[in-house]
Write a protein that binds this DNA or RNA. Structure first.
Lengths: 191, 191
DNA sequence: AAAACATACGGAACACGGTTCCGTTTTACC
DNA sequence: GGTAAAACGGAACCGTGTTCCGTATGTTTT
């Protein structure tokens, strides 16, 4: 008989919790060292666990990435309204916020690439980033449009997708992601 | 006639030439069906050859891609001066030319991704595209800058790199690469 | 404290794609 | 024809992601 009575579930085992935090730290270190595509085995070794343990805690790579960067994404999301309130104009707020977002992306080797992957395993990543950040971006766009500073009806999802793309390969010396993003922001302006 | 110059190399074997064209056709078909990252074995099977034969003719995947798309890249490169001569303004020529380039990229599933890969195997691809197209773009940019239509000193390499990036994932229904490229072009304008 | 049980672990094994290597076959030339 | 260079095929190898299951560990019960 399967005791399906939904009573008090056992609390998570101590070793499980330990391994989870060890994995998060190991993954963060590996991401810095080798980018977000660091081999699974590397991360497992760093954390001193077997590969199975990774998959048990983070079924897809995206889950791990989300877990590692959650705070930073949250910070970025929360910065939106703050910037809007404090900036001279909505357009300035938008530019500052996009700057934050770009900073975040370009400092995470390979994250921008991963963001746009259509691999099913990255669905979670995609979903999380977009769910969290697109509304913030939309708010900023809306404020700037209402103020007559930029073209109306710009789709926040498309814009973020495009900015993410522009940040791919940002560490190449012959490329300048910020310059390109700047052109996009300039292109949004009414003139 | 049969030049018997000393050291005259044997002419290429007939089977070799046959296989090369078979491979080009097979690769073109595979690229259409599965994108430019189609498995090597698939291409070999389509062409009815062994995998070794692919590597003998095209040491890297980039070599194969370049061979398959050479005509189209040439056509794009040659269109630059023509557009410049025929368009109302240099800026219009630039916009039209970039449109051509974007068309080329978005219709080749996975090509934009491959273009930006820093994998050593794609060095050839990178080099060929840039060698062939960047000067054309630079000429258009220069003409438009001289005419006072756009900001001066825009680096053609950075611009093409960025446009290539924007075309990544262009087949996603929730994205619009052309819209983003349009923003960039608008951003180039002096205002 | 020990038994009983659920939970979590480790890492071998598998899948898959790129790449190399070498014995065999085909072709060009004499 | 004969011979040697050129080219071929595909098995074998490597690096990664992913799965699976016998074992170990932690928790609860007696």
């Amino acid at each position: 008989m399967t005791g399906t009575e939904s009573g008090a579930p056992r609390k998570q085992r101590a070793d499980s919790r330990r391994n989870e935090t060890a994995l998060l730290e190991a993954a963060a270190a590996a991401f810095v060292a080798s980018g977000v595509n660091a081999p699974v085995r590397d991360i497992a070794t760093r954390a001193g666990v077997g590969v199975g343990t990774i998959y048990r805690h983070f079924p897809t790579r995206a889950d791990l990435i989300v877990a590692v960067y959650r705070h930073q994404v949250e910070a970025c999301a929360e910065a939106g309204p703050v910037l809007l309130a404090r900036s001279a104009t909505p357009h300035a707020a938008l530019a500052s916020w996009i700057d934050l977002f770009v900073d975040f992306l370009v400092t995470k080797h390979g994250l921008a690439e991963a963001m746009r992957s259509d691999d099913a395993a990255f669905q979670t990543l995609h979903a999380y980033f977009l769910d969290r950040l697109v509304p913030v971006c939309a708010q900023l766009l809306d404020a700037a449009a209402t103020a007559g500073e930029i073209i109306p009806d710009m789709d926040a999802l498309v814009l973020m997708h495009g900015i993410g793309n522009l940040c791919i390969g940002a560490d190449s010396p012959s490329y300048d992601a910020r310059l390109m993003v700047g052109l996009v922001i300039a292109g949004l302006r009414l003139h």
